[in-house]
Design a protein around this nucleic acid. Structure first.
Lengths: 201, 201
DNA sequence: CAGATGACAGATTTCAATATCTGTCATCTG
DNA sequence: CAGATGACAGATATTGAAATCTGTCATCTG
């Protein structure tokens, strides 16, 4: 439909796929649509991605990576004392997700479907985030602010992640518009941070 | 099909509905099925329940109430010191849910569908559970074991409930069979309990 | 000859006709 | 006449035939 002289790269295919998903939704966006948008045959798309599922996974990964990259910045050492960093990290995650869900609900619904299809990609993403949390917590222990559960900062990081599920798991997106949600987030974070804080007694 | 001389009570209809749901699943269990099983016309069922939705809600409520009643027993004063009571309450909730999900996955899937349909019933159930938690926490504050967030034991109870979502929300049921889940539960509960404990410092 | 094509088989989806269900109500019955 | 019935209209679900899509591969082209 829009033939270009440009080489057919994986990147261009991903862009077109994202656009097709945005336009047609997850149920109706086909590989043929993507090929048509690029002005090539669908066979050519299969040269770059083995299956439709692999193509969608790649799109999903890109989307998730955008968030993890922002968070990686906050998890980096040097930024601020671990307790503040942790709070900031959680607040940023919540805000990012909430905006993704609220700003373009249709697109978010589309990605929610993709997320359900691509559990391996999601697992990797979660592992990445838990790693970041674990870094912050470990630093907090080193600096005397935090204590872990059972001396295991990864297990503790996972617990922090799980305890805040309601504020980042897309399954709860429909609750993110409710009025009291900010306060509820703050309460959970306060509780978790208290649980992490080293006790003097 | 099995005509009885017994009067047609709401109770008998609920029983038959549960059975129909068990046999046919949520998608195929019809009011006509229920009536047939009771040997009456479907018009008679509508004398006791205004709509099919109301009938299903009543069944759902019964199912949820079975759990809240068990937990109410644990939340009762006198039983044990609040920290232990809280831990016991959370563990019992997790175990109960896990068994419901694991022992009869098909029936659990059926009820998961009903739960999605009946958000008002679920909200009430959650409110009840949060009340129970709030009682335990309030008692813990009175006895000097706990401190709340912002002096609000209901908000704190809600936070405890949300922080442990992963271990009682049916949306996570598929994760309840995974090997490390027990340890993950314990870690989150430990973290939350630490967060509640009054600090001497 | 690297990369693109499009015909093809089997899988999946769409669509419209058909069947079943929900909820009402005038009528019946003990 | 309290309570049950079943015919009925509109809504929803099922079904099977036709259309479309996925993934492959022999063939083409610059």
């Amino acid at each position: 439909m829009a033939p270009t002289t440009e080489a057919l790269t994986a990147e261009r295919i991903l862009e077109a796929t994202e656009e097709a998903l945005r336009r047609h939704g997850p149920a109706k966006a086909t590989v043929v649509d993507v090929a048509r948008a690029l002005g090539v045959s669908h066979g050519s798309v299969y040269r770059h991605f083995r299956t439709k599922a692999a193509l969608r996974e790649a799109v999903t990964k890109r989307w998730l990576d955008r968030t993890s990259q922002i968070l990686a910045e906050i998890a980096r050492p040097s930024s601020s004392p671990p307790p503040e960093a942790l709070e900031h990290w959680l607040a940023t995650l919540f805000t990012a997700k909430r905006h993704k869900a609220g700003d373009d609900p249709e697109l978010f619904a589309t990605y929610s479907v993709l997320l359900d299809e691509a559990s391996a990609v999601v697992d990797e993403h979660v592992a990445e985030l838990v790693d970041q949390l674990s870094d912050i917590i470990h630093r907090g222990v080193m600096e005397g602010d935090f204590m872990t559960v059972d001396g295991d900062s990864v297990a503790t990081a996972r617990a922090v992640f799980h305890a805040t599920n309601r504020f980042h798991d897309p399954a709860y997106a429909h609750e993110w518009e409710q009025p009291g949600i900010e306060a509820e987030f703050t309460t959970v974070v306060t509780l978790v941070l208290r649980g992490l804080r080293r006790r003097i007694d």
